[in-house]
């Protein structure tokens, strides 16, 4: 009975692992094969990798899309970290009844479905397009702004600030640092791991964001990676080897971040619930 249970557990977990990994293996095999071989279900590595990459870079504007996505993700992440940590610190260290109420109200914004505000946001950015084109429709600025401050990250920083030793704040004040000085000189260096975890989550969210860029970006040269892949995926005569190459390249940054910083990654996820 015990042995049967063991066998069942290992079979079940192995099956789950195979199902989870198979699409990745298939992606990696597909980028080395010709499109025809992919459709014929070939599951062995081929020799077409370089050819696929050449075709990809020659026929698809993947480099500009990568650059756009990188610019958006990096600026969004920096803004998010700065604003959210300032706010999280303020709400926790400079606690007051008024701020607690405001904090609760801000948390409610986490329940707002994006689809519900996308039309008003689109109209809002449309109305400033003429006066400030760098944050108007079809600008990278407009992609960044609404995503750079979210209540989630404020909540995340506040939760983590609960573990920040308050004596350090007092010590900084006694040493003659201003309130802002305490934040930049003491809080920021102490909370490195929290920043790392938040940076990972923010970068991935931004890198993978689809709906808002789809709404606000129009010209092909402004396209981000998810928009490009979506476009490739809906073509009528797809070149599977090439499309899979694009998908692999797009997934590499986030996969790399995951494997290099697994601990921070999980810490980032957990930070939202603990405390």
């Amino acid at each position: 009975m015990k042995k049967l249970q063991r066998i069942f557990i290992y079979t079940f977990l192995s099956l789950a692992a195979i199902v989870s990994i198979f699409p990745f293996l298939w992606m990696l095999v597909s980028i080395t094969n010709k499109s025809v071989d992919v459709t014929q279900g070939r599951l062995l590595p081929g020799t077409h990798l370089i050819e696929n990459m050449k075709t990809l870079f020659a026929t698809v504007d993947i480099v500009p899309a990568l650059i756009n996505s990188a610019i958006i993700a990096i600026i969004t992440t920096i803004l998010t970290l700065l604003l959210a940590s300032l706010a999280g610190y303020g709400f926790e260290i400079h606690r007051s009844r008024g701020k607690d109420i405001v904090f609760t109200i801000l948390l409610l914004s986490m329940m707002i479905p994006f689809a519900a505000i996308m039309v008003p946001l689109y109209r809002m950015f449309g109305s400033i397009s003429d006066t400030a084109p760098f944050i108007g429709i079809d600008s990278l600025g407009a992609v960044i702004l609404p995503t750079a401050t979210t209540a989630f990250f404020i909540f995340f920083f506040r939760q983590n600030t609960k573990m920040f030793p308050k004596d350090l704040v007092e010590a900084g004040r006694i040493d003659g640092l201003s309130e802002i000085g305490v934040f930049f000189r003491i809080y920021m260096p102490t909370m490195k791991t929290t920043y790392a975890a938040a940076a990972i989550i923010s970068f991935m969210n931004s890198w993978n964001n689809y709906l808002w860029p789809l709404v606000i970006l129009q010209s092909p040269e402004k396209r981000t990676i998810p928009l490009l892949i979506s476009n490739l995926g809906s073509s009528y005569s797809p070149d599977y080897g090439v499309i899979m190459s694009a998908i692999v390249i797009a997934t590499l940054p986030t996969a790399l971040v995951f494997f290099l910083m697994q601990k921070h990654f999980v810490a980032g996820m957990m930070g939202s619930v603990k405390g």
Binding site: A87, Y89, S96, A116, I117
Partner: peptide, 25 residues
Amino acid sequence: KVGWLFVIISIIAISIFNFYPMVQA
């Protein structure tokens, strides 16, 4: 007062990009 300075940008941003559009919608 300084405490409010830390949180004010986020409050304004979330109001503009979340709450105001909710009212608009």
